[in-house]
Amino acid sequence: MTKAVLTVIGIDRVGITARISTCLAEANINILDISQTIMQNIFTMVMLVDLSKSTKDIDVITEELNKISAELGLNTQLQHVDVFNSMHRI
């Protein structure tokens, strides 16, 4: 996997972006694009990330993200970019 989309959804609170980006940085994962909205207090962040130089296995990263999600009450999902390309682009 080289490029992936990380989706983070949950109740807005201080430090979500910071915690997630730190986790990615520690694994040498580059953030290529980021979009963030807050609607009715629901925080939604979508990141396009580059995993090609990642120092950690995808299992490990997913586990770390799950840990942060549980702590902050979030829902995170890391998925190959092809999932979205296939579904939304012909």
Partner: peptide, 16 residues
């Protein structure tokens, strides 16, 4: 972004 955040959340919602 190459795919809009709306489309991305739509896919995620379908799965979750």
């Amino acid at each position: 972004m190459f795919i809009s955040p709306d489309e991305i959340t739509q896919t995620v919602r379908m799965i979750q």
